[in-house]
Computed example of a mutant assay.
Amino acid sequence: MERVSLRNLHYGSDPRHHQSPQALELADLGPVLERLPDGLQSILGEGGGLVSGGEGQRVRLGRALLRGEPRLVLLDEPFRGLDRHARAALLTRARERWRGSTLLCVTHDIDAALGFDRVLVIDGGRLVEEGSPIDLADRPDSRYAALLRAEAELRAEGWSDPRWRRLRLEGGQLRAGEAPA
């Protein structure tokens, strides 16, 4: 059984590097812990079944934040399952925490890459473009620019369709909310 417990967060970490309160805050695990019956000692169930995908992502982020000063940090779709604002906030925290490390972030959030020094565009398993995201975004023939345009178009046209509804589960009740941002 997987736990949010300190044991889970410390999995694979050197005990000298444990800074749990800081990692809990940076990974935004406070709301998750408040909801769980036994806080840090809660059993999450098989494969973390008592937490959402986004909450599980934050537990894994908390675990990574407990590492010392890594030379390389690889984040592979680290914030999937979270809303756009939460993803942006967590990415900002991760970048600040690992500012002295090489950070490789694999993501389908095309515009999130605008804040990085370099972007690599992969298509069909092959590197098809690389460079400064700002420079690539300014080139009309760039694959990266085309991806940015497609993402902006989807956000402007696709998600703005009034037939889309955002539903969320709160206290066991299904509630309607705003359309995705």
Rank of each mutant, 00 (worst) to 15 (best):
W98L: 00
P70C: 07
T107V: 08
G115Y: 11
V121S: 03
D111L: 11
R118V: 04
W98H: 01
A112I: 06
L104G: 09
S142Y: 11
V106M: 06
Y144L: 07
S132W: 08
I122N: 00
D117S: 14
V121F: 05
D117G: 15
L91A: 13
W98K: 01
R93L: 02
W98V: 00
E77Y: 02
L90M: 01
V121H: 06
R95A: 11
A88G: 08
D76E: 09
L91G: 07
R143H: 13
S142V: 11
E77P: 03
G115V: 06
E130D: 13
R139F: 01
S101R: 02
H108C: 04
G115K: 10
R126S: 08
L104D: 06
G81Q: 07
R139V: 11
D141Q: 12
L103D: 04
L90Y: 01
I134G: 10
L104R: 09
L136V: 05
Y144Q: 07
A145W: 04
R139Q: 14
L120N: 11
C105E: 09
T107C: 08
G125C: 04
D76R: 03
R71F: 05
A146N: 02
R80S: 15
R80M: 09
R95T: 06
T107Y: 10
V73P: 04
A94H: 02
A146W: 03
A89E: 14
R99K: 13
A89R: 15
A88C: 04
D141P: 01
G125N: 03
D135R: 13
A112E: 15
L136G: 01
L147Y: 11
R126P: 00
L72A: 07
R87V: 12
F116K: 05
H85E: 14
R143G: 00
G125T: 03
A86T: 15
R71N: 04
I110N: 08
A146V: 01
L114N: 06
A146Y: 04
R118H: 14
A94R: 03
A94K: 00
W98F: 15
V119S: 12
T92L: 08
T92H: 13
L75T: 01
L90T: 02
R93E: 11
E96N: 04
D138T: 13
L75M: 09
I134S: 12
P70R: 07
G131S: 05
Y144D: 11
R95N: 04
H85I: 09
P70Y: 02
D123W: 01
G115Q: 13
H108G: 04
C105G: 07
P78D: 10
G124A: 11
G81F: 08
G125R: 02
D111E: 15
G131I: 03
L104E: 07
